[in-house]
Design a binder for these strands. Structure first.
Lengths: 220, 220
DNA sequence: GCGCCAAGTAAACGAATGTTGACATAGGGC
DNA sequence: GCCCTATGTCAACATTCGTTTACTTGGCGC
């Protein structure tokens, strides 16, 4: 009888060709290890969900020993919280300051949606993540999504003080919902044809929808 | 040392007040048990995801012994397939035979999306379910989604033999993606305003989008 | 009323999960 | 150069997962 492979952790000598480690791990560097873990965790949490992701998978992706997750983040939940906090920050940065530039906002949103499946864009985690079983994480996600909705709606002419513009807020959120759905179909299920659609074609189609949704229209 | 509670299965004597069992379980009825399991599984799979759902939870929800899942459905995956198959059937039924009735199709889709959060509508499972970590389960979902996409696209004038209508297929899938996103925002995260939007208002907005997406438009 | 088979139960299994503690080692301060 | 601490490794843990096996129980045909 042959000996079973004793462990599922991969050694750092067979990282395959994954360029996940933006820098070559030369020596011992706690900060680098933490970043690698967060990056790997973001991808896994986004594509597999919180509970379906195992810490051993994350550690393997990051080319790091499993126990370091608990060393640096106390627990799996702590690692998840670390991913979420940074996500919230980055979304604020990407929000435009000039509400008039609706086309620019749309282009940026479309770019995020189209490119999300291949990146570890924090937006992807925000969009994909479902109920995690962690109340605080869910709250952060809801607040961030609502914040982003208001920003997008403002670019489309929504005014919090003008109840007449309320429909714009709803339409902005439908645009976000569409983004969420597209990202899910492309990353989570690889459903055709959207999963392998031509980038330009998909971009055009999305831009059409978002413009139709968000372009100021006085009529009902 | 106190004895640990030996099992997480609940007896059928403390079903709480859940009306999940549409009929009182008087005697032994295999068909009833199977239906109860499928119903409970649909809700759990839809709200928690495949891998995050445990067979013991499902059995407890259905007020049934865990082993019966394996007896009637061979495995957790078999139970999932049973949920999906019925979903596929219902979607087929709801698909019109007359492709010209686009408005009717749209109305039905919108109704499903709007009502999904409060029901155990099979469509909800289809829309909410994410990457399950189980290859066969993912394949079932992908095939069902693609099948439904083609049905919807056909109602909007898509013809598999006419490459010129390919964009319609993509747009139909964007409509599905939007549905998926809306259902997720409403059920999974309760994001405002879409979560508490007026039903009629939401219905109108969705109908507008889907018509704009799917109404035959000869121009590029 | 009785036996027989379907329906349901209980307990255990191996594998996988998150976590922990003891140990090994690199690398900079002195 | 030596040691001391931060960093990383290894093996084990308790628990939970899906599944299986042996068993009990209920209801229908005769």
């Amino acid at each position: 009888m042959s000996e079973p492979t004793p462990s599922s952790t991969v050694q750092h000598d067979d990282l395959e060709d994954s360029p996940d480690d933006e820098l070559v791990r030369s020596g011992r560097d706690a900060a680098l290890t933490r970043r690698a873990l967060v990056r790997a965790a973001r991808r896994r949490f986004a594509t597999e969900g919180y509970r379906a992701t195992t810490v051993r998978e994350i550690a393997a992706d990051a080319g790091v020993n499993v126990a370091l997750i608990n060393r640096y983040f106390t627990s799996k939940e702590g690692l998840f919280a670390a991913c979420m906090i940074r996500t919230s920050d980055e979304l604020d940065i990407r929000t435009p300051d000039r509400p008039s530039d609706l086309d620019g906002v749309i282009d940026r949103l479309v770019a995020h949606v189209v490119l999300a499946p291949d990146s570890d864009d924090p937006l992807q985690l925000l969009l994909l993540l479902r109920s995690s079983g962690d109340e605080n994480a869910d709250l952060i996600r809801r607040n961030t999504l609502e914040h982003f909705t208001r920003k997008l709606a403002a670019a489309a002419g929504w005014n919090a003080d003008d109840p007449g513009t309320a429909p714009v807020l709803l339409r902005a959120q439908l645009a976000i919902a569409t983004s969420l759905g597209v990202v899910m179909l492309r990353t989570s299920a690889a459903v055709q044809p959207v999963a392998s659609a031509d980038i330009d074609e998909l971009t055009d189609a999305l831009r059409d929808i978002f413009r139709a949704l968000l372009t100021p229209r006085p009529t009902k």
